[in-house]
Amino acid sequence: MAFRDRLVATIRAARPIVELPEILIVGSEVPNLLQPGMAATMVVSLDLDIGVPVHRHAAVKERIGELVEFAPSADEPSVWTPRSPHLLEVNFVGMDPDQDPADAYVLEDDRLPLLVFGALSLVGPGPAIDVEGVTVRLPQLAGLLLEKLVTDRTGEKGDRDLLVALGLLAAASPSDLDELDAMYRRLRPELRHAVRSNLTLLSLLEPRAGMPDPRPRRADVAALFRQFNTGEREGS
C-alpha cells in the first residue's frame, strides 16, 4: 500500500478528532499534504501528528473513544497505534500559545496525557483542506516553518526534519515569508540564533532518498539566512 494511501486512510480513520474545531495536523506530514494532489512523496516517520490546543483537550478526550481503528500504546500514552497495518500511528501533541518556545511540560491525564512542546506555541491555524472527504486544518505555514527551524535538531531524524522545513520553504508564498520574518524578529536572541544555526545545518546537508534535494535550494536558504542576519548584532 502506497504511503499516500496510508496517510489518507489514517486521516479518514481519525476523522472524529481531526475534524474538531481548532485541531491541527502538524509535523512532517504537512508538506506531504501540501504537495500537488497530496502526493506524499517525502519519506518521513510513519505517524500522523495531531496538534491539540490545551484548552481543547477535554473536547478531544470526549471523542477519543471514537478512534475505533486505533488503540492507546502501552509504552507511550500520547501515541495511538493502528489496528491495521494499512494505517499510520497517531501521535497527539499539546499546543499552548502562552508557553515559552524553549520549554515543554506534560499535561497530565489518565486517558490522554500530552507532552506540550513550547515550539508549537509558534504554530497557529492555517487553511482547512479537503482530504478525500475529510476536512482537516493545517497550520499556517510560517509558524510551522519557524517551529521546524527553532527546534533542536540532532541525528538522522533532525536532518530529515530540516529537510521537511525545506519542503515548507519551497511551498512558501511571499506573504508567508513576510510573516515568517516578523515572527522571527519577535523571538528572543537565543532562539533567533538557534534558527540561524539550523539554517546553516540545512544549507550543508547531503541529499537523502525520498526527501527534497537541498542543493538546488541552497540559494534560497542563504537568502533567508542573510535576511535573518540583517539587524542582528555581530556574534549575536
Binding site: 499534504l33 501540501l34 504537495q35 500537488p36 494532489g37 497530496m38 487553511p127 482547512a128 483542506i129 479537503d130 482530504v131 476536512t135 511551498a171 508564498s173
Partner: peptide, 9 residues
C-alpha cells in the same frame, strides 16, 4: 505550491 494542490477553504 502548485495547481492541483489541496483545495483550501
Amino acid at each position: 505550491t502548485p495547481a492541483g494542490s489541496p483545495s483550501t477553504r
